[in-house]
Every structure is written in structure tokens, then in C-alpha cells.
């Protein structure tokens, strides 16, 4: 079958091809069933989807994101209204954009429009193979921009890196069950991925520093006030670092056993 240069304007044929004749996503799933049925039907029924996602191609997606997406989430409110975010993610599943387009979305467009970046990241997590997911998403852990998230409970503040971390570690994000990826260390053992270098630096060094700080703090307690006034700050800083490091560690899930043990040891005193 030759590759068509057209999309269908509506989603009917996409939903009708229940994996029988339609093409599969690169990770082997049927894009029409990646989202849950309940959510899928809400999306197809909602006004935003009918009005704004009809006849949209890959370039128009950017339009829609910029115009209409100002929070992330799956369904919100007591009536569980689907968000524009999830509607557009569903549209992306239908359009199945190529890697080149995703790269445009993620890097070039993502620098400018944060919601375009998280939408693409979400789509990549749903459809790409696990090693590609790690490769695409891990660089985004340095993006610290704020995001608004709406759920059934209400609106909360989150960040791009937190959301990406959720995508890599959690199994349910934005009213969608994410497919189970292999852990990063398994992929490393299979030599499909290089060990990840954290932008914060080497974890061992960081822990050493932390220990030094703690020692310094203990030493500084019985000195004069000026030193003491400085120590809580440094303590906070190191704490903050530690939290970040932990987040990264979980997200990568690449920490070997010995490392995690060393971390726990460092924390115990």
C-alpha cells in the first residue's frame, strides 16, 4: 500500500481500523486504543475536539497548541471534561507525525512554546520505543518552566521537568495508562543506551560534598553567629540538591545498587 500524502479530516476511519489495517505505532501498539475507551469517547464527543481538531494537519497542531492549550491534564471538573491537551494528543495519535516533525516540535518549537514541548513528550511516551523515549525525553529534564495542571481535584502548579519525570517513572499520567517500558538499567545492560550523565554532575562527588557540608555544619555550630547564620543556607542548598538528585535518580532508574546503598549510608547519620 503506497503511503498517502493526505490525512482524513475526521477521526472515523482512524477509530474504525481497530488495528486490523491501520498502521501501528513504532512501539507496536495500535494508536487508536492507546488511550482508554472512556477518555477516547469523551474526547470524540467534546465540542473542542469537534470544532478545533477537524481537518488539522501537523502544522495546524502548533496553531491549536498556541491558541488553546494553557494547561495540561487528562479530564477535569466533575463532568470530567477532556482538556484541549488530551484532545490534541489524541489528534496526534491519528496524524502519527514523523520523527523529523517531532524533532521540530520538541526542540525548535519546544524552546518557544512549553506546552508544545510537553504535548510532544507525552505523545512520544505513548508511541515510541523505550530506548527512543529515554533518548528523546531525558534532555528535557533540564527545562524548568512552569506548567498549569488541571485534574479532577483542581488546578495545581507543576514544572516541565517534573512532568517529564512523571512520564518516565509513573504508569498513569493525564488520564492515560502509559505502557510499561523497560527500566533504564536493563536497557543499559543490553547496551541499547549509554549510562546517563546528570547535568548536576557525578552523583558520588555530590554526595561527598554533601558529607563535607554536614561535617562543616557540625563544626560550625560552636563557633560565632556569623558562621551559624551562613550554615542553614548551605544546609538548605544541599537539601535542595539532594531532592533534585533523588528525582533524577528515580527518573533514570539507572543507579546501581551500590550507589543507592552509598546514598542511604550518607543520609543515615
Amino acid at each position: 500500500m503506497k503511503k498517502s500524502e493526505f490525512h482524513r479530516a475526521d477521526e472515523k476511519r482512524f477509530l474504525d481500523e481497530r488495528g486490523s489495517s491501520g498502521s501501528l505505532a513504532p512501539n507496536g501498539l495500535n494508536p487508536a486504543t492507546i488511550m482508554e475507551k472512556a477518555v477516547r469517547e469523551r474526547i470524540v464527543d467534546c465540542y473542542f475536539y469537534k470544532e478545533q481538531c477537524f481537518g488539522v494537519n501537523e502544522a495546524d497542531i502548533v496553531d491549536r497548541v498556541v491558541e488553546h492549550v494553557d494547561f495540561i491534564g487528562g479530564v477535569y471538573g466533575t463532568v470530567q471534561k477532556p482538556t484541549p491537551f488530551i484532545c490534541l494528543a489524541f489528534k496526534l495519535l491519528q496524524l502519527a507525525p514523523s520523527d523529523a516533525i517531532l524533532d521540530e516540535y520538541l526542540r525548535f518549537g519546544g524552546e518557544k512554546f512549553k506546552y508544545l514541548r510537553v504535548l510532544t513528550a507525552f505523545y512520544i511516551r505513548l508511541t515510541r520505543q523505550d530506548k527512543d523515549v529515554y533518548q528523546w525525553l531525558e534532555p528535557l529534564l533540564e527545562d524548568k518552566r512552569k506548567l498549569k495542571r488541571k485534574g479532577r481535584a483542581g488546578t495545581t502548579l507543576t514544572y516541565v521537568d517534573v512532568f517529564i519525570d512523571d512520564l518516565l517513572t509513573k504508569d498513569r499520567v493525564c488520564a492515560t495508562s502509559l505502557w510499561k517500558m523497560r527500566k533504564r538499567d536493563i536497557l543499559e545492560d543490553l547496551e541499547m543506551l549509554e549510562p546517563r550523565v546528570s547535568p548536576l554532575g557525578n552523583i558520588e562527588d555530590l554526595l561527598e560534598e554533601e558529607e563535607d557540608d554536614e561535617v562543616k555544619k557540625e563544626g560550625g555550630d560552636d563557633s560565632d553567629g556569623s558562621v551559624r547564620s551562613k550554615t542553614p543556607d548551605s544546609g538548605l542548598d544541599s537539601n535542595h540538591d539532594k531532592i533534585d538528585v533523588d528525582g533524577m535518580g528515580e527518573s533514570r532508574s539507572s543507579r546501581s545498587r551500590s550507589r543507592s546503598r552509598s546514598r542511604s549510608r550518607s543520609r543515615s547519620p
Binding site: 498517502s4 500524502e5 493526505f6 490525512h7 482524513r8 479530516a9 481537518g55 488539522v56 494537519n57 501537523e58 502544522a59 495546524d60 502548533v62 496553531d63 514523523s98 523529523a100 516533525i101 524533532d103 521540530e104 516540535y105 525548535f108 518549537g109 518557544k112 512554546f113 508544545l116
Partner: peptide
């Protein structure tokens, strides 16, 4: 039917 967009189109749109 809708014409598919290329990466260049997407870039231009952004």
C-alpha cells in the same frame, strides 16, 4: 482530506 505537512512546514509555522 487534508494534506500532510512536512517538517519544513511545521518549522515555518512555528
Amino acid at each position: 482530506e487534508v494534506r500532510k505537512a512536512t517538517a519544513a512546514d511545521v518549522h515555518a509555522r512555528i
